[in-house]
Every structure is written in C-alpha cells, then in structure tokens.
Simulated scan of single mutants.
Amino acid sequence: MPVWLTQLEPLVHEYGLPGLFVDVLLEALGMPLPGETLIIVAAGLAALGQLSITGVALTAFFAAVVGDNIGYLIGRKLGRPLIVRHGSRWGITHERLAAAEDIIQKRGPIIVAFARFFVLLRQLNGIAAGTAGMHWLRFLIANMIGAALWVGLWTTIAYHFGKDVTFLPLIWHHLALVAMVVVPFLLAGSVASALFVWMKAR
C-alpha cells in the first residue's frame, strides 16, 4: 500500500467524518491540506463498508461550501492588505491572491464553479471572490454548483473503484490530468447548454 494512503487512512479512521469536514473546510480557507485526497480516501473506505458514502459526500460538500463562504466573508470584511500580511503564514501570498482575484474578476461565476478542480483556486476561491467584491448570492450559487461537481466526481470514482486498492493511488497521481480533461468538457457542455436554451427561448 502506498505511503500516502497508509498515512491518511488512519486519519480518517481516527477522526471520521468530523475530521474530513475540518480538513476540507480549512483547505478552502487557503491552508495547504489534502482535502481532495482525503475525500478520495474516505470514499474508498466507504466502498469497503467502513464509512457511509452519503455521509462522506454530504460532509465534503457542506465543508467546502462553508469553508469558501467563511473565506468570502474574511476577504470582504478584512480586505486584501490584512489578509496578505497575516495569511502568508499559511501560504496566502500577495502574488497567489492577486492571481486568483484576477481570474475571478475576468470570468466570475464560471470560474468559481470550476475553481475546485485547480489547486490555487480551490484554496483561495472564497477569499479572492470576497476581496474582488463579487456579489455574495452569485458567489454562493456558483460555489454550491462547483462543490457538488467536485465532490460528486471524486466520491463517485473512488466509491465505484475503491475496492481495488491499486486504483486509489492511480486516481491520486492523476488528479491534475483528470481535472484538465474533465473540467474543459464540463465547462464546454455547460456553455453549450446555456446557449442552446437561450437560442431556443429567442
């Protein structure tokens, strides 16, 4: 069994769903924690009957949404200078925050919805949207859609293939590659669907 799995599996066993919730929430606040990987491990354990897959999915979803909304509130209320000054301890540098803000300002809700599939945006999504002044309701809706897609993808894959212990490392080692393939298709499909509905309405 891979080293990373032997280290994370006891963490899920010891703290269960509350531990998963805290990990995903803190990752959404910019901390360098393995939220995505822990979801995969938890869903894999659910496939073995050690956890409830419904519990894993709901826990990860609410943790991601709550974490990003706390981040949004921090960004909106405290402002960029204070965040950069104190957030550097957890890796929230001026450059990283500026890059995330720039992307969100240019693409708005679409980027928020798919931000979770990319490491930088997943960790700074809420904070960047708050400091950029994005409307909260637009952020909330896009954020919930993104959380549902993100959690749904990894829990479904890990749950269906989790009984094969050799498959989980394969998922983990190819997270970026899978995201690069899946996300553009999801994005293109969403845009195409929206254009089709709009043209049909016209």
Rank of each mutant, 00 (worst) to 15 (best):
S193Q: 09
Y159W: 15
Y159I: 05
A176I: 11
L73H: 04
A201G: 04
F139I: 12
F196I: 13
H86A: 10
R80F: 11
F118P: 02
V183W: 03
T131F: 07
V165E: 13
A158C: 11
L137G: 08
L78E: 04
P34R: 05
V24C: 05
A63E: 09
L124K: 03
R80Q: 14
D102V: 01
V151A: 10
L153I: 10
P34Q: 08
R202V: 05
L97F: 02
N143R: 09
A64Q: 02
M31T: 07
G79T: 05
Y159D: 07
M1I: 07
I92H: 00
L97R: 02
V151W: 03
L124Q: 01
T6H: 08
L168D: 03
P18A: 03
A201P: 02
V197P: 02
L168Q: 10
A128L: 01
W154P: 03
L78C: 07
A158M: 09
N143Q: 07
T131P: 04
W136C: 12
A43Q: 05
I103K: 13
E9G: 03
M144T: 07
M134V: 12
T93A: 05
F139P: 11
G133A: 08
K163E: 13
H86Q: 11
L29S: 05
D164Q: 13
G108W: 11
A179S: 15
G16N: 06
L20Y: 01
A192Y: 12
L26M: 14
P32I: 11
Q7S: 04
F196N: 07
V66Q: 02
V66W: 09
G189K: 12
A28I: 01
L124V: 01
L45H: 03
T166L: 06
G55Y: 08
A194P: 04
L78K: 09
A132S: 15
A64G: 04
L177A: 14
F167A: 10
I111Q: 01
G146W: 00
V119F: 11
E14H: 11
S88P: 01
L121R: 00
Y72P: 10
I103A: 14
W150S: 07
L51T: 06
P169V: 04
R202E: 12
V56A: 08
D102H: 13
G108A: 14
L170V: 15
W136G: 09
L177Y: 07
T93L: 00
A113L: 09
G75M: 05
A158H: 11
R107S: 08
A113F: 00
S193A: 15
F61T: 09
H13G: 01
Q7M: 12
V151K: 07
L11C: 03
G49Y: 09
L170I: 13
V84T: 12
I104N: 01
F139V: 12
G152L: 12
I92Y: 00
L78A: 14
G133N: 11
A60F: 10
I40L: 12
A132P: 01
S52P: 04
A60W: 06
A60D: 10
A179L: 03
